[in-house]
Design a protein around this nucleic acid. Structure first.
Lengths: 195, 195, 195, 195
DNA sequence: CATGAATGAGTTTTCATTCAT
DNA sequence: TATGAATGAAAACTCATTCAT
């Protein structure tokens, strides 16, 4: 077996561990999840996890960073900055919805592990970078006088956490996050923030 | 002394345990909090907790129900149903803010333990009752044609979770939840939901 | 209330505790029985037990001695020494059976706590006294050349433990310890030991 | 090395735990024996016991079944069914004595844990199988008109429990279970049951 | 590299005993 | 005298981590 395949295998194993950890951390929380349980679901030996991650804490932090990067890539990067503001907001909302539909686990994980005590400096730093990205997006719309000239954090909280709330309702089965509800919510939130 | 003081002492100890558990569950989560740690912070022996609560799970459920009741009492009960709709919404928002300011721990606890796997049937039932109360409040405003005629759950998610997001930003220090920001957010959310 | 009644009450309480302990020790064993459980079944406060007994170990030892005394009084004392030997043996057997029928709990307790590690010197001494009594009874029959001239302990083991075995079978429901089986067993054991 | 040695090691550890548990359960009883004490005597870590046994209850049940199987194999299986009845009984008695001499702990354990509340259905079932085996042995001798035609359970109780009693006396040091006493007791019990 | 048996510190929970009332 | 709430030491059991294979 050549080194290419070997590296692919390595990647596979690492990914399998991260995927298994994601599922279990969402289901049972960080402290509620045993490392051997992650190993079993990933189909690897318990010791193998320690080849790829220094500790359980390291694992959850790596996972957090990966998920955060995925979310911000998917949602924030590449929105057409020269489209009309309402269209930009529509794109943002649609990307959030798309990400949620395709990566419910990732979304739940991020939300449940928000600001948890075991997140390290690097994870906090990455969180800050994403926040900065989001803030600059809002500030641009405010500068164009299409979004209310209030604290960008207030705008951000409203947009992001409203969506989180909708996601939770959907997961609890109290709401179907179909096109209709998504469109209605989008319009609500737009009216909330537009000038 | 008489039984009055004795009962007060009993209540004191029970309350001390609940208060200590609230703090620690918010800081470290349910699985991350050891029962002796709760005991120590409450200033009682570890065994004493089991006089008042059947198990750690029982403790977290009792706490959940107490907090949920407190929140819904404070926020939903007693809003003047005959005031103008905008005024009713203002009262709701002000009560949320007031509750948050005075019971940040309670608020965080409820939000972190939302739909956790260790919540029992009774806690779920209480949650449902509070949801029903909130839904009927929204439905009334929709019937009066002052709130958008979309799924009440969407309205509820937007109002409640926007506030949760603001609370989180405040706790992380990214936002000061003063009168100005609160008023701005209130106006945003009103514009989000009003017809 | 006069001292007479008070003392009667005291006796009642002590007896209630001993009776409760007997039941529970038989059901769950010494280590398997909690002192508060004894208190509850006896209808007294947990602390009260420590007015009458120095410790759990003291309680089980007092109980052991009381039961042992009861058994030996009932079975060994007062057998007509001048009756024919077969009649003496019949009396012994009938008394054992009678005691078992009327005090199954006491009988089981004695048998289960035979030579347990928590029995103290006094209890062992009482056990020895009862053994001596039994031995002298057997030796007398051997001197009269009606019982086999072998070690009295062998005779004793056969008589007493055969009866214990019958009692156990009865308690497990595999045998009804009625007149018929008792008479049959008596005749067997007599033939076992008679010269 | 190969899997053969590996498996032998596994078996060694499991056996060490069972042997340690046997000793301690005999000395202090089930509830009186702490799992870490078993671990220490077995020379393994406390957690290791839970690799081999699901719980303390599982451990005691496995041990019970193993001991019961050993006893019945040793005593009941392979008695020459075509030897003269008195010789068959002699073989039985000699096997009991031999088993006792070589496995005092096993014998005591079985006797102390007879019908204990923590024995599970499988253990009870195995006990029943052994009882059935013994009953059929007795019934055969009764059919041949060499043993008294009374309830086989009475016969069994007399034979087995007399031996138990002798074993106890020996363990307490009140009796030496040498050839002489064994032969005397054997003759007694034979006279007890023979027609 | 990968494994999973082994471990002991840490978890939840129980209980013998004390002591304020 | 009687109580039962309070306690902390010790129980059963779990799990992050290591290491021999």
């Amino acid at each position: 077996m050549g080194p290419v395949l070997a590296r692919a295998d390595e990647g596979d194993k690492r990914s399998a561990i991260l995927a298994a950890a994601l599922d279990l951390f969402v289901e049972r929380g960080y402290y509620g999840t045993a490392v051997p349980a992650v190993a079993e679901r990933a189909g690897v030996g318990a010791g193998t996890i320690y080849r790829y991650f220094k500790s359980k804490e390291d694992l959850v932090n790596e996972l957090y960073r990966q998920c955060k990067a995925q979310l911000s890539m998917h949602v924030l990067v590449g929105i057409s900055a020269d489209a009309p503001p309402r269209e930009q907001f529509h794109q943002l909302w649609a990307r959030l919805a798309d990400f949620f539909r395709r990566n419910q686990g990732t979304f739940s994980f991020l939300e449940l592990h928000h600001h948890a005590s075991y997140l390290d400096a690097e994870s906090r730093a990455m969180e800050q970078r994403v926040l900065d990205l989001a803030t600059s997006f809002i500030t641009r719309l405010q500068a164009a006088r299409v979004v209310k000239p209030i604290s960008p954090d207030v705008i951000m909280a409203i947009v992001y956490w409203s969506f989180v709330g909708l996601g939770r309702c959907a997961q609890e089965g109290r709401l179907i996050l179909g096109d209709e509800n998504l469109a209605a919510a989008e319009q609500c939130i737009w009216e909330a923030i537009r000038l």
